[in-house]
Amino acid sequence: MAKPMTKTQLVAALADKMDTDKKTAGNALDALTGLITEEVSNGGAVTLPGVGKIYCRERPERMVRNPATGEQFKKEADKQVKVTIAKALKDSVNG
Rank of each mutant, 00 (worst) to 15 (best):
A68K: 15
P4A: 08
D16R: 15
M63P: 05
D30G: 03
G34C: 08
A45G: 04
L10T: 11
G52S: 08
Q9D: 14
V81C: 13
F73C: 05
V83K: 08
K87E: 09
A31C: 04
T24N: 09
T69W: 11
A86W: 01
T33Y: 14
G44N: 08
L10R: 09
K74P: 00
V51I: 11
A31R: 10
G95N: 04
V40S: 01
D21A: 09
A31M: 11
P67I: 07
R65C: 08
G34A: 07
A25H: 01
R65F: 14
L35S: 13
D78C: 04
N94K: 12
A68N: 15
T37N: 11
Q80M: 11
F73G: 07
P67R: 13
E61P: 03
Q80H: 12
E61M: 07
M1K: 14
A86S: 02
L48F: 06
K74G: 00
V93A: 01
S41L: 06
V11R: 07
K17Q: 12
A31Q: 09
M18I: 03
E38M: 07
D19V: 03
D19L: 03
K23R: 15
M63H: 07
M1P: 04
P60A: 15
K87T: 13
R57F: 00
F73Q: 07
K74S: 02
K90C: 00
V51T: 06
M1W: 05
T24P: 04
R62E: 05
A77T: 00
V11Q: 13
G95E: 00
R62Y: 02
L35G: 15
E58P: 05
K79C: 10
Q72M: 13
G95Y: 04
A45P: 05
T24R: 14
N27M: 10
F73W: 04
A12C: 10
L14V: 15
C56K: 14
A31P: 06
K90D: 00
K79R: 15
T47W: 01
V11L: 11
A28N: 07
E61Q: 14
T84P: 02
Y55S: 08
M63E: 07
D30F: 00
L10A: 12
A15W: 13
E76P: 05
L29K: 02
A25T: 01
E71V: 11
I85T: 11
D91W: 00
N66Y: 14
G43S: 00
F73V: 02
E61C: 06
N66H: 14
N94Y: 11
L10I: 10
N27C: 05
C56Y: 08
A28G: 03
Q72C: 13
V46W: 05
M63C: 04
R62V: 01
D78H: 05
E39V: 11
F73R: 07
A25K: 04
D30P: 01
K90P: 00
R65M: 14
K22L: 07
L48D: 10
A86G: 01
L35P: 08
M5A: 14
M5L: 13
D19N: 11
K90M: 02
D21V: 09
A15L: 09
G50H: 09
K7L: 12
D16Q: 15
A12Y: 08
